[in-house]
Design a protein around this nucleic acid. Structure first.
Lengths: 197, 197, 197, 197
DNA sequence: CATGAATGAGAGTTCATTCAT
DNA sequence: GATGAATGAACTCTCATTCAT
């Protein structure tokens, strides 16, 4: 790692943020160094001073993302929120993201992982998935404890929910998914947890 | 479409089958006309006699695939097979395909649909998904009728199962999925249908 | 020269006539053997049985043309036509051809001669030009004799007129020429011959 | 248009000048980007940094040309030159250009305009033609005023002269034109203006 | 640090031409 | 004679990457 002045750090961040928009717009594979150079308004050579390839850039964008977004569950949750409230909030958040095809890194992320088989330790996506499963599990357990949920395999259910969400996510990018379809799945999940509408 | 003699039809098929292997190996976007030309052992111009682009070729590969594979459910099913048998057979088939990362068109298909937003009518993927949901629903209904399954929303459950499978499929290509993980999901699904192991 | 049956002669002629239309449509250089093959509805190899290249085909089209069109001056001329009548008829014919940009071999012919510097003997274009000059000269002489025209250098005038027509022809294909512009030149020519409007 | 440093401007000019020679040598249509690249001794991609197509290059060559050549009439004219002198100078200049088949953009220009029907405003060729007519008209008027020329339709005569020159130009490229033939036309023009040899 | 001109490999595509049937 | 599949050369155009300034 090269030492860097504040200015460099700033620029680095600027590039990543700009590149992020480009990836949201065009996915991963279609994006060229030229695209990023142009979006950033810097010189070709300049970009190479900071990054070597679109892969490297994308990976760093992903890292940035995962640092900022670690509080998906935490944001906007009131103190007296019930487990149902929190789960619903989360599912709705997922729904929102699912349905906007652009302005998401979803597609780019998939494309990226398609061609970069990362060792598990570096697989941010996996970390995020596992972490989401764990949190979901805790939530369900909490819900079961205070009688909101009925469930005898919290861990299995949590995993199952996350896979359904993954399925919805990829379907949204390929076969298309409507708000109704997502709602139906959310309802199905909730009913499975013993929640009456 | 140009008229073609038997020979042409043969070659066309040969190209599609060869291209299929290439797509399984490299996905969709990375594949160039040159790749296919070389895999087929034909001339540059020769390929253009049959197809105009990798997109066209891939779409036809997909069509071929979906024609051949329409009997996923039908193959190797004994006359006295129970609903549970059939569902299990199907799920195991899916598992097998899921776990072999190569030798599948999964990734290529996703990549293809990422950049080709086809109108719903032409979206083979969607047709396959919907068709699978419908068949699964019938199966579950049949199972409920003869007491093998317990389920009060057959249609919802069928859809849910298919989304889980989609989730597993994309996860296999991105975060990696082990046989154990798939088994766990299959068990979860079966238990949800009231089947004791 | 290969011997040929009636059928072959027919087909040869058919190809030339079809090719002629193609050349009128697209000029010379843009036309490919493929274009002609397609226009004729024959096979690629079939065309090569008769002709080797677009150049050869075009040259033969030109020959055909010049045989058919040798009577530019002769057609539709009444017995009691005066020299003025005939010259006017000719000029009007030229005007008509000038103004329709398509449906003429003009452009194709120019293009052809640009890249095929033919020895003078084979230069059909030159033959046509010289022949037209000669006829025009005779006409003017006849007109002078019976008092219709005034002119002391019939040969020079004839040549001059033909160059003006050439100038108009090429201008029509490049800078564009209106009916008015042609009329003005025709009037100028006539006045030069001592004809009052 | 991209901003460019001095160096770029130099290179741009260098490319245009080199391309000019190529066009003089081979006409317009036959010239490929590769031809120009090789003539310039630069890289394939390098050329695309400056120009997108042979059409664009040719158009700019033409612009360059027309800027430099605006003084066809003005160059080498003595203060005490008579109208006859100037007209003769111009005609001789035209003759010289006419007779050297190579080293002229004539053919390339015609080819270019054959396939690029430019709107009148952008048609440099037309501008040049009209401008030449206007200047010729002024010259003739001046000659008439001081008794050098006899002419009652100066404007018509000017136009006529220019069409003759166009006719000679295209003939030089197609049927071939000798010095004698040009001289004859020049003499004819002068005699028409009432000038004794 | 930063620039941006320059390079060259490689993808896509088209066609004249041949040749087995 | 006639066919049309097949070939391969040639062209256009784009980008990752380098390097002198």
């Amino acid at each position: 790692m090269r030492k860097m002045g504040d200015k460099s750090v700033q620029k680095r961040k600027y590039i990543l943020e700009t590149a992020r928009k480009v990836f949201m717009e065009k996915g991963f594979k279609k994006v060229t160094m030229k695209d990023i150079v142009e979006a950033c308004g810097i010189s070709r050579g300049g970009l190479y001073l900071y990054f070597d390839s679109t892969s490297q850039i994308f990976l760093e964008v992903l890292k940035m993302e995962s640092q900022e977004a670690d509080d998906v569950f935490g944001e906007g949750i009131k103190d007296d929120a019930t487990a149902v409230d929190i789960v619903l909030l989360f599912l709705r958040e997922q729904k929102k993201e699912l349905l906007r095809k652009k302005n998401t890194l979803t597609q780019a992320t998939y494309e990226f992982y398609f061609e970069n088989e990362l060792p598990k330790r570096d697989n941010i996506l996996k970390k995020q998935f596992d972490s989401a499963v764990r949190i979901m599990e805790k939530l369900i357990e909490a819900g079961v404890e205070n009688g909101e949920f009925v469930c005898d395999d919290c861990s299995g259910t949590a995993r199952n929910i996350m896979f359904v969400l993954e399925g919805l996510k990829i379907s949204a990018q390929t076969i298309g998914v409507t708000a109704d379809m997502v709602d139906r799945e959310i309802l199905y999940i909730l009913r499975n947890l013993g929640v009456e509408d």
